[in-house]
Nucleic acid binder design. Sequence first.
DNA 1: TGTACATCAGTGAACGCGCGTTCACTGATGTAC
DNA 2: TGTACATCAGTGAACGCGCGTTCACTGATGTAC
Lengths: 204, 204
Amino acid sequence: MKQGYHHGNLRQALVEAALVLTAKLGPTGFTLSEAAKAADVTPAAVYRHFAGRDDLMAEVARQGYAIFAALMEFAYNNGQPTALAAFEATGRAYLAFARKYPGHYKAMFESGLNLNAHPDLALVAQKARSVLEKAAEQLSQHMPQGKRPPSSMFSAHIWALSHGVVELYMRGAPGAQSPFTPEDLLEAGIGIYLRGLGLLPPDL
Amino acid sequence: MKQGYHHGNLRQALVEAALVLTAKLGPTGFTLSEAAKAADVTPAAVYRHFAGRDDLMAEVARQGYAIFAALMEFAYNNGQPTALAAFEATGRAYLAFARKYPGHYKAMFESGLNLNAHPDLALVAQKARSVLEKAAEQLSQHMPQGKRPPSSMFSAHIWALSHGVVELYMRGAPGAQSPFTPEDLLEAGIGIYLRGLGLLPPDL
DNA sequence: TGTACATCAGTGAACGCGCGTTCACTGATGTAC
DNA sequence: TGTACATCAGTGAACGCGCGTTCACTGATGTAC
């Protein structure tokens, strides 16, 4: 890994160090100095690759959104086999991402960084979101015409439910433990919700 | 307010200063020194009333949970006029609380403080949660027997949905803007969810 | 009512710490001849 | 293939800052006589 004076790929090594720290301590617990130390490098070296602390954090989030978008796209699977299955899969993917990439997740959703200050970040974030919105819109086609709520609304509902489940029940958070796994909780919640939309039979 | 050498009610003044700071900067932006300054007092004076920074933060959260529990209890209204109405009211109350008491809310849900380290805090937090659970359980009585999901599950769903709506759509957060107000979003979401439970007519 | 005194809520100076950031520098790498 | 040199990724020391916390202290308050 360490090959003498020059590091080789310090940039990515710093991102990964930041990731580990963020996963462990949350986005506010991450510091440039600690990340540098974890990468076996002087804090000043960071400035060869990033404009500063916030820029490093933004890069972590950017990579997170990219992974997230890819995961969502994969789960969506072009709306196959059915619009419904695809939609449900994206909901599950949200939670799977939060579990598998906690550092990225926290950088993205708990760091309070300003998307508008990083246009490239905003772009890739929008791309991730649009997958779910596409799935919602496609699903909306299958609903009885008159009583369709706007698709942007129920993509927001699923997004919010998923986010809430992660924040409250996947962390040790103050929302308290529940006897259910986050996965079961979300699965059941989405099921009930889709039944409410008339997209699942009521007796299931 | 300032009556010479002694402050009068420094303890509560510090809590309120912390509240303002937390509302503005989030729980990590709040510092003991700034709170002391806002209360026109030396940082050292804080130690007459609190064990330290974390203890002050915990007191903010404690007062928050107390207000929250009272608000929920009021919204629940002993399950009147109907179990359904009471349940919906508690959902709305969650969001109303987040909007009206942003400092308390952030201290409670975004500060990452450990409930187990503050037993009294855990107690009052549990009290707040139990109101929603009571409402869910009572509502559960009105459901067809066989297909009742556990009431603890759908209180968790509503809790998660409410939390997600607040985090993603009430802040400028990266969850993106939606064309709907958080209130409308939550209202509609709970409506669809309750329909999914068979507690609202499907054609509404 | 007036004085002596105990209490205790505040002051102000000081501390050690880790932070992000800067700067002049050094020495490894890779290219030109 | 060997040497001279430009490049540039890293070092190491230093900075100013605000933080939480401590300590000996002071002076306002309120009580006992």
